[in-house]
Write a protein that binds this DNA or RNA. Structure first.
Lengths: 202, 202
DNA sequence: GCGTGGCCATGACGTCTGTCACCGGTGTCA
DNA sequence: TGACACCGGTGACAGACGTCATGGCCACGC
């Protein structure tokens, strides 16, 4: 009785290394690996793993989106999100989207296998430090439109370009950005966008 | 006769997973692991590894800086840089700083051990795709001051703040940024900063 | 010697940005 | 039924931003 695992991470080297690490455990077996978000659902269908290790930042499809689709389709696979940074907002959104666990890549390697076992057993696993930070940071104060404007502002594009991307008037975009700047306590749209991104608000 | 390895990566999970991966090889042994750039030199001194796997982006000290210090002190350890993204500029700077090899984390896991063996044998290992991109992209056209200004502009701070950080007049900063914008073919300082960062020019 | 280019600064110009006030329309909820 | 929040837009204004011309200083190469 082994735990069948699926690994989803965009960096092939990290993926392979995690596979080596987890294959060392006697009660685990990596049955599939994918490097893109839009390949996860198909891989889950064909390999039917017990637990799925998901990175959030992936090409093709966002890890959060993957979680939502897996749940929509009623797939029984439990998902453990393994992601780079402590973006507190990601934690809430991942759990809301149906994740069974949330671990950051800063955690010691030996704890990963234990987290997988707990998730497989049906226990919710959450990095404690991250959980408190998430509660401390409070909820996301931004509206959907403000988030869209900030996302489009992340690369430093002028308001005119952002307005074009969102099919809005430049004045409206400036209003949203101004509101977001106020809510984040920053002074420019790029600062506001980075601030929000760091908290997983986008 | 085994190859003694030192792993330097800020993400504990990735570090541990790489250790598991490389320890599987019969001719390799991981003798030390560090999570910060400023711990590498001391670890090299005490563990005297044959090959050192270095991430570039680390807290404490930049991977490039580590390479320079290792060479200054005449340490015989060969270094294989293993980093996240294909920032072509990093390649040149790493090789100039004394790296023996350069591999991105997108490479398949089985190739890593082979790269380590080649580096240990004294062969220079460079990701071919990255090398061509580096040659194609051409050299860094930015002056030192322009780079400093762009680094300070990355987070979207106003010119006044950037000027304060660099101890320069706001007008001078605007001139540098304007020049950098022209050289990068962008329209805002943030775009220019991101453009330059993507190429490893900063 | 003189041109070239980087460094630092100033001033002026037009445009862009951030802020505010204000408008109408929609949906929600007490 | 109001109160409230979000959505979209407009107009105006001060300040910030990007561009350009210009100056002096220094180091380097022909």
């Amino acid at each position: 009785m082994v735990i069948r695992l699926l690994l989803a991470d965009d960096q092939a080297l990290v993926r392979g290394a995690l596979a080596a690490l987890l294959d060392l455990e006697r009660d685990m077996q990596v049955v599939a690996q994918v490097g893109r978000g839009d390949e996860v659902v198909e891989a889950v269908r064909s390999a039917s793993p017990d637990v799925c290790l998901l990175d959030i930042e992936m090409p093709g499809r966002d890890g959060i989106g993957v979680l939502e689709e897996l749940r929509e389709r009623g797939m029984p696979t439990r998902c453990l999100v393994v992601t780079t940074f402590g973006r507190p907002g990601y934690l809430r959104r991942a759990m809301d989207a149906g994740a069974s666990g949330f671990v950051v890549k800063d955690t010691p390697a030996p704890e990963l296998a234990e987290a997988v076992r707990r998730v497989h057993a049906g226990v919710r696993v959450v990095d404690p430090a991250l959980a408190t930070e998430s509660l401390l940071g409070g909820p996301n104060p931004l509206t959907e439109r403000e988030r869209e404007a900030l996302r489009a502002a992340l690369d430093g594009a002028p308001v005119q370009v952002i307005a074009g991307r969102l099919y809005l008037s430049p004045g409206t975009v400036r209003n949203y950005l101004s509101s977001a700047i106020g809510k984040t306590g920053t002074t420019t749209r790029v600062e506001a966008a980075k601030f929000a991104e760091d908290r997983g608000w986008l």
